[in-house]
């Protein structure tokens, strides 16, 4: 469903992504790991359409279309969902208002009628149950005053309501205690199915104990330098990234 070829992207003249290639098929879970500053979050933001990043070379094909042609909202309407590393607080907009507007904008794009209040509420209640969320969260302004765990859970809740085809989870596990991590990964596992793809961007192996990836990629200095299966993640956990750096140097030599 997603085919990234030789993607280069920069911000303020600094090249961050230096030729990334990645194939994601429906039903697959990919983990992208790497040390701080390797370009993991940049990749997530470029895929979601953050305009401050400039794509200087390469292509991203999504469901047969050129993803880079789409505005951020049209990417979302086409089924791409980014769970933010740092979810944004929006005072004055309630969670429920936000979600209803988002869902109905997506429905409109696909020529569907908007969901009326009661129908929407029914859907939302189903999803809060799956994620074991408190209803009071719905009435609160988006992410305002939420704890770190609540913010991450709220991201997954939005994902549950919007039902994306391709979810990009940017460091969804960072800063979570073990209970919150379990709750978040349970939620993701319940939403996983054979038709949707998931890209998990993470610093730690820990999340992968709960959500088992089909593929693990190591991002280093703006490039995917190694790909493998879950075992690669375990190896990284044990040995860190230095051995991969060493391997890289040898290859260059």
């Amino acid at each position: 469903m997603l085919s990234i070829k030789n993607l280069h992207a920069s911000i303020g003249g600094n090249e961050i992504l230096k030729g990334i290639s990645l194939e994601v098929k429906a039903g697959e879970v990919h983990a992208i790991m790497g040390p701080n500053g390797s370009g993991k979050s940049t990749l997530s933001k470029v895929l979601a359409g953050r305009e401050e990043y400039e794509v200087t070379a390469g292509s991203v094909e999504y469901l047969g279309k050129n993803l880079l042609d789409f505005s951020p909202e049209d990417r979302a309407r086409e089924g791409i969902f980014l769970a933010f590393q740092y979810p944004v607080e929006i005072p004055g907009v309630t969670n429920i208002m936000f979600l209803r507007t988002a869902l109905n904008e997506i429905r409109k794009y696909h020529g569907k009628e908007p969901l009326e209040g009661p129908e929407f509420l029914k859907l939302v209640r189903e999803k809060t149950k799956i994620l074991d969320l408190d209803d009071s969260l719905l009435k609160r302004p988006v992410n305002e005053g939420f704890s770190g765990g609540e913010k991450k859970r709220n991201e997954i809740f939005q994902m549950a309501v919007l039902e994306p085809k391709l979810a990009i989870l940017d460091e969804t596990d960072s800063g979570l205690d073990i209970d919150a991590l379990r709750a978040v990964s349970d939620g993701i596992n319940k939403l996983k199915n054979k038709d949707n793809g998931i890209i998990m961007v993470t610093h730690y192996q820990r999340l992968l104990d709960y959500i088992v990836p089909d593929f693990v990629h190591v991002l280093l200095n703006g490039k995917i330098v190694k790909s493998g299966t879950r075992e690669l993640a375990l190896e990284l956990e044990e040995k860190g990234y230095d051995w991969i750096r060493e391997e890289q140097k040898e290859e260059v030599v």
Partner: peptide, 17 residues
Amino acid sequence: FYLQSRGIGEPMAKAML
């Protein structure tokens, strides 16, 4: 950007904010 990334068009997102 957060609103847009959820499928909300720019004019709508601006109005909401």
